[in-house]
């Protein structure tokens, strides 16, 4: 029983890690608290729903088209809201409030077109593999494999490619990047696109398993943010570890208490971290003066 829950926890953790990493790509480099990221996570499966269920495309083609459209949504957010605000040197709070507004508008739009009810992508029960007592569904395998592939790919990319070096440089010191001729606003477009790939993939993988409604984004975003904070803000590998910790912890909570306590325990962990180790697991203490 424990092992089964552990497996479920690791699969959920992989999704949290994936989504949190996408959030970190934007937050660590631009310091934008991208609340509307919840929408990116939520719209991607709706695009799949349109192509796959309504128009009858092949599932892989639907997924690829959906990711492309999700990237477009992410870029539209950056270009019409974040970029003008950043150019005016608006404070982080102003940008965050606008981001919340953006999220609400987008959720309402989706609810208007698709309705508030839960949609499912496919009706058949997922096949599963049995190892004695343990059951792993194909959906879970897909979630775990997909997340792991993107995460490890990105980590190598970050470490060894020139784009990766520039991403880390931007995380460390944005004005300095501009002094060395990096067009930071153009670079941000790539970062927003990349984060959309992460959130969109996560959203589609989860929706394939359990379906979606217009409000699935926010709980996932909160988990991702907790993962980011307990891992350590400003590090790219930190949200991955944070994501797995939350996933496994939530499974244990479901086993010992009940699913109702899941969120409560997650946020208790967040507050404990903020009080006793605000820099997160991998963060370093900031000098006060």
């Amino acid at each position: 029983m424990l092992l089964q829950l552990l497996i479920n926890g690791i699969v959920n953790g992989a999704i949290y890690a994936l989504v949190a990493l996408g959030f970190a790509i934007v937050y660590n480099t631009t310091r934008i608290f991208h609340i509307a990221y919840a929408v990116i996570y939520m719209v991607a499966p709706y695009f799949v729903y349109t192509f796959f269920d309504k128009l009858g495309f092949n599932i892989w083609i639907s997924a690829i088209l959906a990711i492309i459209l999700t990237i477009v949504v992410s870029l539209v957010m950056e270009l019409i809201v974040y970029k003008p605000l950043s150019k005016k040197n608006s404070s982080g709070n102003v940008i965050m409030i606008s981001s919340i507004g953006l999220m609400i508008i987008a959720i309402n739009l989706v609810a208007l077109f698709y309705g508030n009810d839960t949609k499912i992508l496919h009706r058949d029960i997922s096949d599963s593999i049995r190892f004695g007592q343990l059951i792993i569904t194909y959906s879970q395998l897909l979630q775990f494999g997909g997340s792991l592939l993107l995460i490890t790919g990105f980590i190598f990319f970050l470490k060894f490619s020139k784009f990766g070096i520039k991403t880390r440089a931007m995380r460390d010191d944005e004005p300095l990047c501009r002094v060395f001729a990096l067009d930071t606003f153009r670079f941000r477009n790539y970062l927003f696109a990349l984060s959309a790939v992460f959130a969109g993939t996560g959203g589609i993988l989860v929706a394939w398993d359990v379906g979606m409604d217009p409000y699935v984004g926010m709980p996932m975003l909160l988990n991702a943010i907790v993962a980011l904070i307990i891992g350590g803000v400003g590090k790219f590998h930190a949200p991955i570890v944070g994501g797995f910790i939350i996933g496994i912890l939530q499974s244990v909570v479901i086993w010992k208490f009940s699913a109702n306590w899941m969120e409560g325990v997650t946020f208790t962990l967040l507050i404990l971290f903020l009080v006793f180790r605000p820099q997160g697991l991998f963060g370093e203490k900031q000098r006060l003066v």
């Binding site: 490619s161 020139k162 784009f163 880390r168 460390d172 010191d173 990047c177 790539y190």
Partner: peptide, 24 residues
């Protein structure tokens, strides 16, 4: 102003006017 988390060599490499490698 220095890229703290980058290595000494990476600090040197990241400077440069060429835009090659800026796109993923």
């Amino acid at each position: 102003h220095i890229f703290d988390e980058l290595s000494i060599l990476e600090n040197m490499l990241v400077a440069g006017k060429e835009t090659f490698g800026e796109t993923p």
